[in-house]
Amino acid sequence: MYVNRRAPHGTIYGHEGLEVVLVGAAFDQEVSMAFVGDGVFQLKQAQDTSGIGTKNFAGAYRALADYDVTRLYVETESLEERGLTVGDLMPLTYEDEEDNDQEKSSITLIDRASLGQLFEAQDVILNF
């Protein structure tokens, strides 16, 4: 599981973290991502970095479904603490091959306690 804990553009961690996720997708592993704390800003809609002159990598999140990374857990409390709702996030979806290619949301809201249990179940966790 890849855990995003920081806002997207102030440090390079989100950007270089996403590169790990995309490369890692080539390995036949069970992969998920979690977004906690300021990490929820990674998925914010309509990011625009033109004012700061850094590369806007947020669009690459839309490629995750093509790499079969379709389980993105967003911590509910982190969203609420920042005045955000799921509607403020990019509408990331995938086609569920096991369910007639139905389009489904890749984003799952999860409360803090349940996310803790999910961490417990992981073999390897990488924080970015």
């Binding site: 590169e19 790990v20 490369v23 890692g24 080539a26 390995f27 592993q29 073999d123 390897v124 990488l126 924080n127």
Partner: peptide, 21 residues
């Protein structure tokens, strides 16, 4: 080398430790 080496290390090792945030 590439990031695949990182992923492989996570898969192969019994214990995978990260230093620095």
């Amino acid at each position: 080398s590439g990031l695949g080496q990182l992923i492989e290390a996570g898969i192969e090792a019994d214990r995978f430790l990260v230093f620095g945030n």
